[in-house]
């Protein structure tokens, strides 16, 4: 599944990184602990989190994640969005909380 299909199916808001909407999704990782994501997420994963600062983008880039979904309508910091645009890794937001978001993604990807 591509990021843009996930955006449509879950009605996500695209905050930045539009050029990466064709990135291919391979699985999902849910965590707010950065070292947990660094150590355990896989390339192509969707990352669901409530963290919004720039280090989220640094990790998404280093791990080559497909996209980041911020839950509960969180807004990412401005420098996070800038880097997301530069690197083409989309930052998406949803009004749902983590449990619902992860459950819906699980249904789509299982």
């Amino acid at each position: 599944m591509k990021v843009k299909e996930l955006v449509e199916k879950l009605n996500l808001k695209v905050l930045s990184g539009e050029s990466g909407l064709d990135r291919e999704i391979e699985g999902c990782y849910v965590s707010d602990l950065l070292s947990d994501v660094m150590g355990n997420a896989e390339m192509g994963n969707v990352w669901v989190t409530l963290q919004t600062h720039k280090n989220v983008m640094a990790i998404a880039s280093l791990k080559e994640l497909a996209c980041v979904i911020l839950v509960k309508n969180q807004q990412a910091a401005e420098d996070t969005l800038e880097q997301s645009n530069e690197e083409g890794i989309p930052f998406l937001s949803t009004t749902m909380q983590t449990f619902e978001t992860a459950g819906k993604i699980y249904e789509l990807l299982k």
């Binding site: 950065l34 070292s35 947990d36 963290q51 600062h53 280090n55």
Partner: peptide, 10 residues
Amino acid sequence: MGFGAGMGLP
């Protein structure tokens, strides 16, 4: 910020 989980050195 989500750091400091004691996972860095491991």
